[in-house]
Design a protein around this nucleic acid. Structure first.
Length: 429
RNA sequence: GUGAGUGUAGCUCAGCUUGGUAGAGCGCUGGAUUGUGGCUCCAGUGGUCGAGGGUUCGAAUCCCUCCACUCACCCCA
C-alpha cells in the first residue's frame, strides 16, 4: 500500500509555493504599512476556546473540528480559525494595557473537516489581521482600505466588497424574535435546514440559497430596521468614510457571518473565478468577544478579517496579473572533472554568501549535458570550470540567453551576477 | 452528511460501444567522436489498466461490490 496524503490535505509543491510566498510577501508589506505586527499562536488549543467564542451551534464547532483527547484527558482541538486564538492571547497577556490599538496579523494552517472541493481543503491556509481595543468606525475603514490595497498589489481587480451590519448584543434578541414571528406560519413550507435554523440561529435563514424559500425570505423584516442607534450610526459613519475615500462597495442586507462572535460591521470580498467558493476573504467586528473570554470592558471591541490563501492564490492565477515567479538560479557552476570540483565548490560558496542563487552541476558529466541542465533550470549563466580555469582563476562565463562567453575573475563574476539579480526581479515572466 | 462525474506510465490522455492479455505526447536516462546548451533525430526507462469478486477459452474493455479523487449542495475563508 502506497502511503498518500490524508484526504483534504495536500502537498504544496514549488509551482504552488511561489504563489503562496508572493501573497505572503505582499501581505506582510501591506500590513506593515498599516502598522500591524505578527502574532504566532499554537495550532492546538483547548476545545473550549472554540465552543465559547465561535459558538456551540455553528457548523464549524458542531461538526467540522478535529478534536481529540490528550493523554491526560484534556480535550484539544486543531484550530479551525485564528481569531479566537488571537483574542485568547490578547486576554492572556493583557495586551490592552499596551499603548494604542493592538494590531496583529497571522498566517498559517487551519483545519476543518469538510468535504474537499475547489478552493476548499481540510488543511487550508489563512492570512488574517485583527484590531483589538478600538470601537471606532475609522478602524473598520482602515482595515477595509488595507484589504483593498492588498488586493490591488496582488493583481486582483475584480473583487467586490460587500458589507452589512449584523447588529449587536443589544439589538439582536429583538430581531431574532421578530424573525421567528414573521417566519411563524410559513415555516412548514421551508426547507428542513431553515426550519432548524429558525430555532438555533434565525439569522442563518437569511443566508439560505434554496430557490423555493427565496420569496419567503424576501418578505422577512430586515435586520437594518432593528439596529439600535449605536449600530446604525456606526454603519453610517463607515459608509461615509468609504464613500469619501473612493472605496466602492455594495450593501447586502442578507450578508451574515457564520461565526457567532460577529457583531455590527460584517464584510466579504467576493470573486467570480473561484467556482462555488466565491468568498475570497471575509470578516467583521466582534465587540464583546474578548470580554466573553475574560477581559474587562476596558479591553474594548475588535474587528478582523481572514483570507483563504488557497482561494486567493487561485484568484491571483486567474487574474494572471503576476507571472509565476521563476526560482531560477543566477548561474550553474560546472566543474568539468573531479579535479575541478574543489575550486568549483569554493567559488559556489563564495557567491552564495553574497546572496546569489547558485546551482552546482555534477562533476564528470559531459559538458553538453551540464549546459542542457542549466538551460532547463532557466539559469542566466553557466560558469565553466576546467583545468585551465582552475589554474588561472579566470572562469569561463557563458551568457545562456545570448550564447556569448568570456573569461572573468571571481570579483568580476560576483559583481556581474549581483548586477543581473538586481536588474531582474524574481518574477520575470 | 447528500448528489453527480472520473479512476490506464511521474504528468496529460487514447484504447472500452463491436472482449483477443497496453499505446501516444510530454518528462526522465543515454547516444548523434575530443570542453559548449536551448531545436532536431535515434534509442532506452517506465503501468499488478484504483481494489476485490463474477461471466468467459480469454477482461483495461461486460456485470457486481468496495475504495479513492474531482465538482456541486451544505457551510465557510
Amino acid at each position: 500500500m502506497k502511503i498518500v496524503s490524508v484526504k483534504g490535505m495536500r502537498d504544496l509543491l514549488p509551482a504552488d509555493t511561489v504563489w503562496f510566498q508572493r501573497l505572503e510577501d505582499e501581505a506582510r508589506a501591506t500590513f506593515a504599512a498599516y502598522n500591524f505586527q505578527e502574532i504566532r499562536t499554537p495550532i492546538v488549543e483547548p476545545t473550549e476556546l472554540f465552543t465559547r467564542s465561535v459558538g456551540e451551534e455553528t457548523d464549524i464547532v458542531g461538526k467540522e473540528m478535529y478534536t481529540f483527547a490528550d493523554r491526560d484527558g484534556a480535550s484539544l482541538t486543531l484550530r479551525p480559525e485564528a481569531t479566537a486564538s488571537v483574542a485568547r492571547a490578547y486576554v492572556e497577556h493583557r495586551l490592552w494595557e499596551r499603548p494604542g490599538l493592538c494590531k496583529l496579523y497571522y498566517m498559517g494552517p487551519m483545519f476543518r473537516r469538510e468535504r474537499p472541493q475547489k478552493g476548499r481543503y481540510r488543511q487550508f491556509y489563512q492570512i488574517g489581521a485583527e484590531v483589538l481595543g478600538g470601537n471606532s468606525p475609522v478602524v473598520d475603514f482602515e482595515l477595509l482600505a488595507m484589504l483593498r490595497l492588498l488586493l490591488e498589489r496582488c493583481g486582483i481587480q475584480d473583487a467586490e466588497l460587500v458589507i452589512n451590519s449584523v447588529g449587536c448584543a443589544d439589538d439582536r434578541p429583538a430581531y431574532h424574535a421578530a424573525l421567528r414571528e414573521a417566519l411563524g406560519a410559513r415555516l412548514p413550507e421551508m426547507c428542513a435546514d431553515c426550519q432548524r435554523r429558525a430555532q438555533t440561529n434565525p439569522l442563518r435563514v437569511l443566508d439560505c440559497k434554496v430557490p423555493a424559500d427565496q420569496p419567503i425570505i424576501a418578505a422577512l423584516p430586515t435586520l437594518e430596521s432593528f439596529l439600535d442607534d449605536k449600530c446604525r450610526l456606526h454603519f453610517a459613519q463607515l459608509r461615509q468614510l468609504l464613500d469619501a475615500n473612493g472605496i466602492s462597495y455594495r450593501v447586502d442586507p442578507r450578508l451574515v457571518r457564520g461565526l457567532d462572535y460577529y457583531t455590527s460591521t460584517a464584510f466579504e470580498f467576493q470573486h467570480g473565478a473561484l467556482g462555488a467558493q466565491n468568498a475570497l476573504l471575509g470578516g467583521g467586528r466582534y465587540d464583546g468577544l474578548t470580554q466573553a473570554l475574560g477581559a474587562p470592558a476596558q479591553a474594548g471591541g475588535g474587528i478582523g478579517f481572514a483570507l483563504g490563501a488557497d482561494r486567493f492564490v487561485l484568484a491571483m492565477q486567474a487574474a494572471q496579473a503576476l507571472s509565476a515567479a521563476l526560482t531560477a538560479p543566477a548561474a550553474v557552476i560546472i566543474p568539468l572533472s573531479a579535479g575541478e570540483l574543489q575550486p568549483a565548490l569554493a567559488l559556489a560558496e563564495r557567491l552564495r554568501r553574497s546572496g546569489i542563487r547558485i546551482e552546482l552541476a555534477e562533476s564528470g558529466r559531459k559538458l553538453s549535458r551540464s549546459l542542457e541542465l542549466a538551460s532547463k533550470l532557466q539559469a542566466g549563466y553557466a560558469v565553466i570550470v576546467g583545468a585551465d580555469e582552475a589554474a588561472s582563476g579566470q572562469w569561463q562565463l557563458k551568457d545562456l540567453s545570448r550564447g556569448q562567453q568570456q573569461h572573468i575573475d571571481t570579483e568580476g563574476l560576483e559583481a556581474r551576477l549581483k548586477e543581473v539579480a538586481a536588474a531582474a526581479p524574481a518574477e520575470v515572466a
